[in-house]
Design a protein around this nucleic acid. Structure first.
Lengths: 151, 151
DNA sequence: ATGTATTAAATGTTGCTACATCAACTGTAA
DNA sequence: TTACAGTTGATGTAGCAACATTTAATACAT
């Protein structure tokens, strides 16, 4: 369905405005599906992102500042996200011995197990994006990269 | 810059995962710029979206439910967004005479004036997306439409 | 060694989303 | 007319983003 129909706006000022609106809309559409995927697992999308980052470095610890740097949503409160994950016992937080300001965060076995389960769900979800073939998916990525190239 | 560099993740499971992550990231990138555009105007991005919808129907009133339907971010609290705009005197809220459950919302002169000023800023901002030419912008939109086609 | 600047994390505030629920109102059928 | 289902908007809650500020620890210059 065209973006015009999806948001019931018949005209746009320019191809650029149309593209920008389409991007925000499609991103929400994807984020929404991802969120619905995570909820039954007891975590939110942002908590999942933190866990993924931690798994990427496992068994090495990751500092809160490093987590922030790698998050998609810029930075803000990785500290509070880690809080929630500690409560769920999906990560462990220990004071960094070499720098007592810093905090080392490590994913637990329980956290790794959760991610393993989610991996399967993710693979299934990606299959539902099959309206684009691989070449088109790559082309879309390239256009996005080029768009941001302005910076 | 490639998405791999932007988020410091060297590999993705598939072109589809890469595309999805790229979409979320680029959408945040655009939303961020838009937000910075709005803030000096004293409104948030979501409040701006509500005003745009109201201007589209001006001088006809729009119901809260209609606003929700047209918002990019699905539905939730158009009611509270209208609250904030009423306080700023950018919109007026009156009980709908034909159906006392419904609420008619209309943009004020002050609201229209604000949007006129923002229009210029938007046009300037769109120019900064010029790393893509118009054909590429249209192509990107088409790919996004096709992606959502799965539904 | 001491004072200053810098860094890391935590925390407080505002605004938003998603969801559930509620209250008021309307339409319809018995 | 009355009962009930559906609709419209408001509101309460949890979670996250952006931003500013605070606290603690460290680095550095004098």
């Amino acid at each position: 369905m065209s973006i015009e129909q999806d948001i019931k706006q018949p005209r746009f000022r320019s191809p650029y405005q149309r593209m920008a609106v389409n991007l925000l809309f499609t991103s929400n559409w994807i984020g929404d599906m991802q969120m619905r995927l995570m909820r039954p697992q007891g975590i939110t999308l942002q908590q999942y992102n933190v866990l993924r980052i931690l798994r990427g470095q496992h068994p090495n610890p990751v500092r809160v500042a490093d987590i922030m740097e790698r998050m998609l949503d810029k930075m803000s409160n990785a500290s509070r996200l880690v809080d929630k994950l500690v409560v769920k016992e999906l990560v462990k937080r220990t004071e960094c011995p070499s720098d007592r300001r810093a905090v080392d965060v490590v994913i637990t076995e329980s956290g790794l197990a959760l991610l393993t389960g989610i991996d399967e769900l993710q693979t299934g979800w990606e299959a539902s994006l099959g309206t684009l073939d691989e070449a088109e998916a790559n082309q879309l990525s390239s256009l996005l990269d080029k768009l941001r190239g302005s910076e």
